[in-house]
Design a protein around this nucleic acid. Structure first.
Length: 575
RNA sequence: GCCCAGGUAGUGUAGUGGCCUAUCAUGUCGGCCUGUCACGCCGACGACUCGGAUUCGAAUUCCGACCUGGGCGCCA
């Protein structure tokens, strides 16, 4: 048996399948396993011998083993060479201390040694007594008591244990086919009724669709089966039985309306095409973090409970805050600007925003996620360049990393936009709208839905609308010095809708006060916000990007509610 | 907030005054079936959002409530 070799996989080091058919467990098993693996596989410990634990009967099992006694194994946690199992065992106490109690307390901890490929595992029960269990090499190799991801069950496996949902049951009489699904894929479990044990047969007869089962048995390479392999169970356990009928059909034989789906979102999200949206959204969030951190941004968190409106305009949700009146924040705008006054220079926040508008459309939510960015010593050109580069980076990342999810959604024509996006001055945008629509559109109007659609068709891809009239943008947008009737504000548009708006901000106290007044607002209500502008405020610019709209336009979703797990709209407060 | 369209088994649907004891599919239950892959076949189960009105008779027409979808306004 060769020492275990480690391969990079989805950003982590892991053992190839033949050595340890275990990874990505949820719950304690996964945490222990990953924790051990990540500790042991830092570059310093590249050659160490990882331990694999399932937290159950098997305790912790070393994967691979040194070829000779003198092949020392670097202990994963102690970072020192361990000569033998006995040595390893003697370090158990301090080794245990390296884990937090939440990792250890429910587990049976174990120590292990190995000879000739076999493992001898010392297990401790809850009373603290040690027992000794001998696991032959074959057992380790096949992952005894180990759940493995379904996609990693290949025709080459001898044995496998999988856990997941019962996707479908097809009972042919003497032969039953069950499809078992986890987040990685679907495997066919084939039950020849005359050949399996009585308890397996009982469980198979009793199981319902979408129940959670654990199945272990032998893997057979069969061309007729999906994925070229099937699992013939030696044990079949119903871990959690699903009631029937189901609120909606997970196997997608019968379509369900969005409203029905949202009522049972947990079931809806079991459907691979729905789950794909949120896996991609997760990749987007991770990429935004990576991008902004590597560009030197500081992540901040600002209050969602506020005393007053930030911008006027939109309706706010009032809440009772002890003896005071308060609101849910519509935007982190004022707070991220204040952090410019704090000298943070580059900040970002990805967080919820709340709008109490009674709109009820496919592109509005009452609770949305905003990606907010603010940069000191920057103007609107700088932050537009940042925004378009980020957007292209996100598209490229999804294109590179999310193929299986795009396939699950049957998106075939995913294309990455290219920089730079056109900068369309507001007056030209109005001219296009006037030319292409019947609606009365004049300079100084906000761009309505029909105009937005007409301009989007003309532009064909992402574009910026720049040089807006100062009158229709918020007070914090910086007017041009040579023509104060227009300002350094911009909107990032997708042909279907607005994705982001931003501006270079007013950083001069006197001008800001005048602009607040000119919008008919009372500067006294903004004193907390205005204060930093009196004690040295760098020039700055920023934007806010609607996360759901980004997901929606990127994936061609017809309704923005598809881009949120649990949307909040005019009528929906539950779940 | 305004306008339009809807509300029929768990799910998705057909039915626009009497042929409705309400269609079909899926599902669930029972029966048959050893290579299915939307398995197939046979049988059963299961619904007209609520309240009021018109009518001999209402799932169907009218009024109201509640809920839903779409559009607009406003917004990101």
């Amino acid at each position: 048996m060769e020492p275990v070799s480690l391969v990079p996989h989805e950003g982590r080091w892991r053992c190839p399948l033949q050595h340890a058919q275990a990874d990505y467990h949820d719950g304690y098993r996964g945490r222990i396993f990953r924790d051990l693996l990540s500790r042991s596989l830092s570059p310093l410990h590249r050659d160490s011998c990882p331990l694999v634990g399932d937290g159950g009967d098997a305790g912790l099992v070393p994967v691979g083993h040194p070829r000779r006694e003198e092949d020392c194994t670097r202990h994963p946690v102690l970072d020192r060479k361990v000569r033998s199992g006995r040595d390893l065992r003697s370090r158990l106490k301090s080794w245990r201390g390296a884990f937090s109690p939440r990792h250890c307390s429910p587990m049976k901890m174990a120590d292990a040694t190995f000879m000739n490929g076999d493992a001898c595992v010392l297990e401790r029960d809850s009373c603290g007594f040690f027992g000794k269990t001998h696991y032959p090499r074959a057992t380790i190799r096949t992952g005894f008591h180990m759940r493995i991801p379904i996609k990693e069950v290949t025709p080459g496996c001898e044995r496998a244990e999988v856990c997941g949902f019962v996707h479908e049951v097809r009972d042919l009489g003497g032969l039953v086919f069950l499809l078992v699904r986890d987040r990685t894929g679907i495997i066919q479990v084939t039950v020849p009724k005359k050949k399996v044990a009585e308890d397996v047969l009982c469980a198979v007869r009793d199981v319902s669709r979408e129940s959670i089962v654990r199945v272990s048995g032998t893997v057979k390479a069969i061309d007729k089966a999906p994925g070229g392999r099937e699992l013939v169970p030696e044990s079949f356990e119903i871990i959690s039985r699903a009631e029937s009928p189901l609120p909606l059909d997970v196997a997608e034989k019968v379509p369900a309306e969005l409203d029905t789906r949202l009522d049972s979102r947990f079931l809806d999200a079991r459907r691979p095409r729905v789950a794909a949206v949120f896996h991609i959204r997760s990749v987007l969030a991770r990429t935004i973090h990576e991008y902004l951190f590597s560009a030197g941004f500081v992540n901040i968190t600002t209050p969602k409970i506020v005393a007053a409106a930030t911008e006027g305009g939109t309706e706010l949700f009032p809440i009772a805050y002890f003896e005071k009146e308060a609101f849910l924040n519509q935007s982190p705008q004022l707070y991220k600007q204040m952090m410019m006054g704090a000298g943070f220079e580059k900040v970002f926040e990805i967080g919820p925003i709340f709008r109490a508008e009674e709109h009820n459309t496919t592109k509005h939510l009452n609770e949305a996620t905003s990606v907010d960015v603010e940069v000191s010593y920057a103007d609107h050109h700088h932050v537009m360049a940042l925004l378009e580069d980020l957007l292209v980076t996100l598209y490229r990342r999804v294109d590179e990393e999310c193929r299986p999810f795009l396939d699950a959604m049957e998106i075939k024509d995913f294309s990455v936009p290219s920089c730079p996006f056109p900068r369309l001055p507001y007056d030209e945008a109005i001219a296009i709208a006037q030319k292409k629509t019947d609606e009365q559109v004049t300079y100084g109007d906000d761009i309505g839905t029909a105009a937005e659609k007409a301009i989007g068709e003309e532009m064909g891809g992402h574009y910026f609308i720049v040089d807006w009239p100062t009158a229709i943008k918020p007070y914090y947008a910086m007017p041009y010095e040579d023509d104060p009737s227009i300002c350094k504000a911009f909107d990032l548009m997708h042909p279907r809708m607005e994705l982001s708006s931003g501006a270079q901000r007013v950083h001069q106290y006197d001008l800001l006060v005048r602009q607040i007044q000119s919008k008919g607002l009372n500067p006294d209500n903004f004193s907390f916000y205005l204060l930093p502008f009196r004690y040295g405020m760098p020039p700055h610019a920023g934007w806010g990007l609607g996360m759901e709209r980004l997901v929606m336009t990127m994936l061609g979703l017809s309704n923005i509610r598809e881009a949120v797990l649990f949307p909040r709209d005019r009528h929906r407060l539950v779940p």
